[in-house]
Every structure is written in structure tokens, then in C-alpha cells.
Computed example of a mutant assay.
Amino acid sequence: MTHDPLAAPAGPPAGLPDLHNLRDVGGLRTDDGGRTRHGVLYRSGTVAFLDAAQAEVLVGGDGLGVRCRVDLRGPREVAEETSAALRERERRAEHVEIHAADVAWDFTASHRSDWVAAHYARYLDASGDRIVTVARLLADPANRPLLAHCSAGKDRTGVTVAVLLRAVGVVADDLVADYARTAQAIAGLREQLTRLPAYGDRIAAVPQEALGSTPETMWAFLSTLDERHGGARAYLLGHGLDGSELSALTEALVEPA
């Protein structure tokens, strides 16, 4: 039977209807025959719309029990678009902005997979130390389960999670499939983005495909990661992660065969 990583448990559990694009990255295969652990790393879109009950599901002991939320958004987004109820209840929140220096998204451009992957490569160029920071946070048991998120949970989150997963040996097929799962959440994400100050009316002019997460985009990004940086492990080590930290990250994320 063909392995289907999309069949792995994912998506918001009951009680989190406003946390779109949420999933546990557990259950993905690794090159050495292992699997990523469930309940260690979650990824999602914006946390702006969580009320008190939903915040409790996310961070409470009877819910997901998230101990650390890593916010990959820019300063304006963080200030204007974070749930007050979540701020009151969460244990730890870290702002680790992933950015592409001064290169902005061009919403008038055709959203071709190679163009998007090229923008993702700019995240690698400008935010290596920040991606290493996320790796270190995740390697620390005190921060797990950890939630990494941006606004849509696709671009900044997609790049960060892809680097971490590939660095611990997740097979490319499963990593690409996980990235592509955002397509299931596009309708809800688009509606939410229209209500966020940092996006507002701009999102109405963005073509539907601009929120897409095609497999071709992630394949192109992984090729760039390999060709320019020698792969995810070399990328993290080259930006300051040491060998013991990489081993700790692997232990945190991977259940051996």
C-alpha cells in the first residue's frame, strides 16, 4: 500500500474552530525508517481570533497543552493581531520574525511556484539566525509541545518547519505533502485575512492561487536549500546550531524505527 502522509492525524481538534491550518507534524517518515513524534510540534495560521475557551484548548492541560508559542510574524502583526485571551493564558510566547530583508511580496505578480520558491529562498538568506532560534526552542523539553505560526501558516511557517523537518531526516515526499495540506484551509484563511489590519482590503485583490501551497513550490524550495546551502543540516550548522543541539532537535522530533 502506498504511504499517504495526508492520512496522519491533523487539523484543529474540537474546540479550536478559529485556529485555521493547525496541524501536528507527527507521523512523517524519516530517511532512517523512523517517524516524527506526535504532540511535539504544531503549526498553524493566525492566533488573532481565539477566544478564552479556544485559548484554553490550545494551552490547557486538557487540550493540546502548548507550552511555547513561536510567532514568526512581523512586529505590526504581532502587536495588532494576537488574541488577548491567549496572551493571558499562555505560558511562553517568543517573537522570532522570519523575513526576506527588504523584499516584499508582490501581490500583482503571477503566483508561479518558482517565483514563490525564490521568495522562500530570501527567507533563508535573511533569517538564518532566527530559524536556528526556533530549532533551539524546540530542542528544549521545557518548550514542548511548541506551536510555530505566522498569519496563514504557509510561507514563513512553511519555510521554518520545512528546514527543521528536513534537518532531522524527514523524507522529502512527506515534507512536501505536509506543506501542501494548507490547500485544505485556504477558504477559512482568506476570510480571516480580510479582517486583519496588516492585510485588510489588500487581500481582496489577491488571486485565489496566491494563497496556494502547491507541491511544486516546496520541491523547488528544497532544491534551492540543497544547491545553495548543502541541505537543511548544513544550513542550520552554518548559521550557528552546533552538533549537540542538532542531536537534541532530532531526539525531540523523531521516534526511531
Rank of each mutant, 00 (worst) to 15 (best):
G128D: 02
A104L: 15
L86Y: 06
R144A: 04
E94T: 03
T108P: 11
A126C: 05
R112F: 00
H95Y: 02
R130Y: 02
A104Y: 13
W105L: 06
R92A: 00
L138V: 14
E94W: 05
L86I: 04
V103Q: 14
R92W: 02
S113K: 07
A142V: 13
V134H: 15
R136K: 14
V134Q: 15
L124Q: 05
A135P: 07
N143I: 10
D114Y: 04
L124Y: 01
V96L: 09
N143S: 15
A126N: 07
R136E: 05
A117N: 08
A118Y: 03
W115G: 01
E88G: 03
A118Q: 11
E97R: 15
H111A: 04
D102M: 03
I98Y: 01
G128M: 09
V103G: 02
A93C: 08
S83D: 03
H111G: 00
V103P: 06
T133H: 10
D114V: 07
A126T: 05
A126D: 02
D140E: 12
E90G: 03
H95C: 05
A84W: 06
H111T: 05
H95Q: 13
A117Y: 07
D129N: 05
R122Y: 01
R144L: 11
A93W: 08
A109I: 08
I131N: 10
G128I: 01
V116T: 11
S83R: 07
A126Q: 06
H119K: 12
A126P: 04
A104K: 14
A117I: 05
R112L: 10
E88P: 04
